[in-house]
Design a protein around this nucleic acid. Sequence first.
DNA 1: ATGAAAGCGCTAACAC
DNA 2: GTGTTAGCGCTTTCAT
Lengths: 348, 348
Amino acid sequence: MIEQVKKTSIKDIARESGVAISTVSHVINNTKFVADGTREKVMKAINELHYRPNLIARGLRTKSTRTIGLLLPDISQPFFAQVVKGIEAVARLRNYTLIMGCAFYDIEEEKRQLNSMLDQNTDGIIFFCGYDSYDHIKRVHDSNIPVLVLDREIDNKDIPSVLVDNFAAMEKAVQYLYDLGHRKIGYITFPFENQTTIRRRYEGYCSALKKNGLKYNPDFVIIDDQMRLQELKGTYAVIKQKVEEKKIPTAIITLADFLAIGAMKAVKEFGLAVPDDISIMGFNDEMICAFSDPPLTTVKQPKKLMGETAANLLIDIIERKKIENKNIILDTEIVKRETTAPPPIAKK
Amino acid sequence: MIEQVKKTSIKDIARESGVAISTVSHVINNTKFVADGTREKVMKAINELHYRPNLIARGLRTKSTRTIGLLLPDISQPFFAQVVKGIEAVARLRNYTLIMGCAFYDIEEEKRQLNSMLDQNTDGIIFFCGYDSYDHIKRVHDSNIPVLVLDREIDNKDIPSVLVDNFAAMEKAVQYLYDLGHRKIGYITFPFENQTTIRRRYEGYCSALKKNGLKYNPDFVIIDDQMRLQELKGTYAVIKQKVEEKKIPTAIITLADFLAIGAMKAVKEFGLAVPDDISIMGFNDEMICAFSDPPLTTVKQPKKLMGETAANLLIDIIERKKIENKNIILDTEIVKRETTAPPPIAKK
DNA sequence: ATGAAAGCGCTAACAC
DNA sequence: GTGTTAGCGCTTTCAT
C-alpha cells in the first residue's frame, strides 16, 4: 500500500533549530523582527529539511489562499485559450495559483463550479465570457469576495470588468467596408439573446448601416445557432445554403474569424473569388488569419492584454490596492489583409 | 473597508440543529449511520443556512484536496488546449478541481510551479508535454504523490503515462506518401534534443525511409528552432529560403499542422501547386486542417481522449482503484484530405 | 527578542 | 446513535 511520507512541518523546524514555532513563522513571513543569529539557525533548518510551508494550513488560518478561480466557456477555443494565457502569466508573476473550470455556456454548470471554487476559498473569481447572467455573480460580489467579469457585459458598474467595445469595433469594421464602396453588407452571427458581447457587435453592425443610410436587409443577415459549436463546419453549411438561394451581398462580416473562414470556403466553392467577387471580414485576429487563403482581414481583439488586465485588476482588488478605474475598456483595431477590396460593381 | 462576511461553519449547523459537530460531519459525509430524524434536522439547518463545507479545513484534516495540478508548456497552443479540455471534463465529472500552470518549456519554471502545486497539496499532478526532464518528476513520484506524464516520454515505466506512439505514427505517414509514389520526402521539425515525443517522430521518419530503401537526404530535412514559437511565420520564412535554394522534395511532412500550413503558403507563393507539384502533410489534425486551402492531409492525435485518459488514470491512482495498465499508448490515424497526391513524375 | 497557546473548520477516534 | 475532543499546520495575540 502506498504510504505518504510525512512532510516536514513548522514544528520540525522549530525543534531542529531550537526555537519556538512562532519564531519560525516570523522568519518565514518577515512579520516581526528576529535576531540575526536566531534567524540564521531557522533558515539553516529550513534549508536542510527542505521545508515548505503548507498553504492549506496557512489558508485555513489566514483565509487567503493566493488562488484565483477562472470560469470560462471552453478552453479549447483559441480565443479563450489566448486570453487565458494572459491571465495565467500575470497570476504566476504575482504568485497566485490559477484554478480553471469550463462551463460550456451552461449557466447551471457555471454555478456549480463557482460554488466549488468558493468552497476552495479562492481569493477572487474571474467570470470570463459565458452567457449573460447576473445574479450569481452579484451574490458573490455582495458577499465581498472579489470578482471580475471579463468579456461579459453586465450593467452593474459596481462589479469590476474588463471589456472590449464590441459595438464600436463592429461599427468601425462595417464603416471600413462601406468606405471601400460596399453597399450590400452581410452579417453572420450566433443568436445573442444571452450574450451581450455578441449582441453589441450586432448592434454595431446595425448602427453603421443606419449612419450610412443603408437599409437593413434580412436576406444578408444570418443568425444561426448551429455555428456556435461547430464554427467552421456550421458556417460552411449555412453559407452553402444561402449562396444557393442567391442572396449574396458584396461583403460579409462575421462575428468571429472561424465563421469567416468557413464562409470563405463555401463561397469559393461556388466559384466566387475573394475579395474580387465578395469581401469577407472576420473578428478576433486569430493566428490563422494571416495564413488563410487569402489572408483574412479582421478586427483584432487584444487577447493577451485582456487576460493580463483582468488578472492584474482582480489581484489589485484582492490585495486592496488603490484602484483608479475598475471598469476597463480596451481598444480594438482593424487588421487589413487580403480578403477585402472594393466591390465588383464599383470597380467597373 | 471591505469586510468579509463570516461564512457559516459546521458549528453553526450543530447549534442550529441541536446536535453535535461530529453528527453533522457524519451526515455530510455519510460516514456513520445517523437516525433519520436527526439527519433531517441537520439537513434542514444545512439548507436553511446554505452551509457548504470548507474544503480548506477538510483538506488540512484529511490531506486530500480533490485537486489536481496540470503543468503544460502553453495553453494558447490549440493542441494543448484541446487536450486540456479532455482533462478538465473528466476532472469536473469526477469532482476534482483543476489547477493549471504554463511553463513555456522552461524547466526551472516548471519546477517552481510544481513546488507551488505541491504546497497547495494537490492530490496528483499531470506533467503534460514540456522538455524531457526526469528528476523532479521522479522525486515527486518517489514521495508517493500520484503523478502522470502525458505526451512526454520517460524511460521509467513505474511512472504512469499516457502517450501516443509517435514513432509508428510518423512511420505510417511517410509510408503513406511512399505508397503514393513519392521518393523524395522532406521533413520539417523543431530541434529535439530535449523532447522525446518530437524525436520519436523524426525517428519514425528515418525508419520509414530506410524500410523502403530511401536514402536520407539532409537537403530535404529542415530542423529549425525559429519555428517553435512562431510555428506559422517561422515555417513560412524557413521554407521560403529553402525553396529559393531549389532543394525541393516532392512531398513534405511536418511535425505539426501549423508548420504544414506555413509551408503551404510559402510553397504556393513560389507558384507550386499543392498537391499537384508537391504534397504536404501535417500532424495533429487541428480543427483548421479541414479548412485550409486545400484541406490538409494529416495524422490525427486523439487529443480529447488523451486528456480524458490521463485524467481518469491519475484519478484512479489517487483513489487507489485497481489499475490494469498504467502506461497507456493511444492510436493515431491518418486523415486523408487534399494536400497529398502522387508526385508529378509518377503521374506523367 | 522569543515563547506559549488559542483557534481557523473540519474529521475521526473514542467514550457513552 | 450521538457527543466529546484531539489534532491537521499554521498565524497571531499576549506574556515574559
